[in-house]
């Protein structure tokens, strides 16, 4: 899709417009878009200054030298690489190289930025820092930006809106909160969040005037909140899929009647927290636990599911039906 917008690929059908003008038949260099790639593609023999200046020296966009200097310095300051201008790419860290390649895109004052996985090359530690730096720069740019990534953290952190793509189709377009709290499909729900959301098949049972979920071989512990109940009744199916984020399932080792019995499957400490996988009714469920928890495999454990935070999907199509909590409902104004 990014290549179609850039003009590298030509669409078979449909139109792409920028500022109201159809650009389908425009050559890439006439579209005023700037691309930033995963690999930085810097000229190794040119200094940082010359690399950033290179688009301004091309025959098409040629600028007077004084103007070039001014522009390069302005951009370098935003990116905080003004102290590196005389260095060669080989003398830079990966993070600095990425900033130079951004600088080269910025200097043209494009109408649209196209970024193709610009942080994927960096190791996990640097990525965390660069993502925040990216966000800091973005706040100062105010240019329409399309950013391609497979990393859900980058999408949630950086984007005003996210388009989730699956096999060439858009599954959902929405704000990060909408995507995370009200995913349009099970695919979207599973793509955001680590550890992954637990999506379980649940029967709907009416008992004593309440609606309950029949989940994991148990129908006593999951009363459906009123707001969702109405949506589920309107939906009409007697089986749905119920999604629980790992942090919305609490555990205890001394069960009380409000809890569901399960057993410990595995425990993976990760420093500040741990992933606890438990087994109930033959299914594995992931929870977040404290890193210093002392558990033994197969030890009994009791679970409390926060149905208020559950996300319900159609059991056939996997499409969103309802969520009790208000989170992710777009606020007006």
């Amino acid at each position: 899709m990014l290549n179609l917008i850039a003009g590298i690929l030509v669409p078979e059908e449909g139109v792409i417009t920028m500022n109201g003008n159809v650009v389908n038949s425009l050559e890439p260099e006439d579209r005023n878009v700037a691309m930033v790639f995963e690999n930085y593609a810097l000229y190794p023999h040119l200094t940082v200054f010359e690399n950033i200046a290179s688009p301004l020296r091309s025959p098409k966009y040629r600028q007077p030298e004084g103007k070039i200097r001014e522009e390069v310095e302005r951009v370098a300051k935003i990116l905080r690489i003004d102290w590196l201008l005389q260095r060669l790419p080989s003398e830079l860290s990966n993070g600095q190289r990425q900033r130079v390649s951004l600088g080269r895109a910025l200097v043209r004052n494009p109408e649209v930025f196209l970024m193709d996985e610009p942080l994927t090359h960096l190791d996990a530690k640097l990525r965390h820092q660069m993502r925040a730096e990216f966000k800091e720069m973005q706040a100062n740019l105010n240019t329409t930006t399309i950013y391609v990534t497979h990393d859900y953290l980058e999408a949630l952190s950086l984007a005003d809106r996210i388009a989730v793509l699956n096999q060439g189709r858009i599954e959902q377009i929405g704000t990060p909160d909408e995507i995370y709290y009200r995913p349009a499909t099970e695919f979207v729900a599973e793509a955001f969040g680590e550890p992954e959301i637990n999506i379980l098949t649940a029967g709907l049972v009416n008992k004593d005037g309440w609606m309950y979920l029949n989940l994991l071989g148990d129908s006593d512990h999951f009363a459906v909140p009123g707001r969702v109940r109405q949506a589920l009744e309107e939906h009409g199916a007697d089986t749905v899929r119920a999604g629980f984020r790992p942090k919305d399932i609490k555990y205890s080792f001394t069960g009380d009647p409000s809890m569901l019995r399960a057993s410990v499957y595995s425990f993976e400490p990760l420093g500040a927290k741990a992933i606890l996988t438990v087994q109930a009714d033959g299914q594995l469920i992931r929870l977040i636990a404290a890193a210093d928890l002392d558990v033994k495999p197969d030890q009994p454990i009791y679970l409390k599911f926060n149905v208020e935070e559950a996300i319900f999907f159609d059991s056939g199509t996997g499409r969103f039906i309802a969520r009790a909590g208000e989170k992710g409902v777009r606020s007006v104004g």
């Binding site: 925040a132 955001f192 790992p246």
Partner: peptide
């Protein structure tokens, strides 16, 4: 300087 909302946590 920067605030990130990442679903499970914020930074």
């Amino acid at each position: 300087t920067i605030f990130e909302s990442l679903g499970e946590e914020c930074r």
